[in-house]
Computed example of a mutant assay.
Amino acid sequence: MRFETGVDIDAPAERVWRVMTDVVRWPEFTPTMTSLEHLGDGPLRLGGRVRIKQPGLPPMVWQVTEFSEGRSFAWQAAGGGVTTLGTHVLTPRDGGVSVLLGIVQSGPLAPLMALLAGGRTRRYVRTEAESLKRRCESGDER
């Protein structure tokens, strides 16, 4: 299964990147995240690991597999015969940025997972994009 959604955000790229990579604060502004915990220290970076709990899903540990400062990061988690890759790409545009969020699932049970949870996955990714837009455009970075 592959799913991507994009959103244009009318805020400076630096603000969007800061909010997007301050992952432990995501539960403050998106209902698709119950908790995120860094399994290490320092900011999000290549090789970093984060435990994520989402409503209706078991906790999973995600490891950052790609990281381009100020532009993009990807992380992946594996379990139950499925490997899930989450992508986060920021592209500057006049007046702000475009953000593309994606999920790609592979592995022997990926087709079954798509059938059982594909709708929820799509809703979660869309909600996360919309929540990021609201947070960044509000200027609220507490």
Score class of each variant (00 low, 15 high):
E128L: 09
F67N: 07
V23H: 03
D41H: 12
S131C: 04
G102E: 05
Q76M: 10
E4Y: 08
A13R: 12
V19P: 05
S138T: 09
L36Y: 00
V16N: 08
G139R: 05
V50K: 01
T21N: 08
D41K: 11
H88A: 02
F29R: 04
F3P: 06
H88N: 09
R123D: 04
S35H: 07
G80R: 13
S68Y: 08
P31K: 07
R126H: 05
G40R: 08
D140K: 05
H88V: 02
E128P: 01
Q105P: 00
G6H: 01
H88G: 01
H88S: 03
R45Q: 13
T30Y: 04
I103F: 07
F3A: 05
P108Q: 13
R49P: 09
V7C: 03
R18E: 15
V50G: 00
R18W: 11
F67P: 06
S35K: 12
G70D: 12
T83W: 04
V104I: 13
T91A: 14
R93H: 00
E4L: 12
L112W: 09
S35M: 06
G119E: 04
M60V: 09
W26K: 01
E130N: 13
R25D: 13
I52G: 13
R123M: 02
V64I: 14
T32A: 11
A129R: 04
M113Y: 14
T83F: 03
R18Y: 10
F73P: 02
R25Q: 11
G40N: 10
Q63E: 15
W17L: 00
V61I: 09
S131W: 05
T32M: 08
L132R: 06
D22C: 01
L90V: 15
A110T: 03
D41W: 06
G40Q: 06
R2Q: 13
L101T: 04
T91W: 01
G40L: 10
V97Y: 01
G47S: 08
A129T: 04
P55N: 03
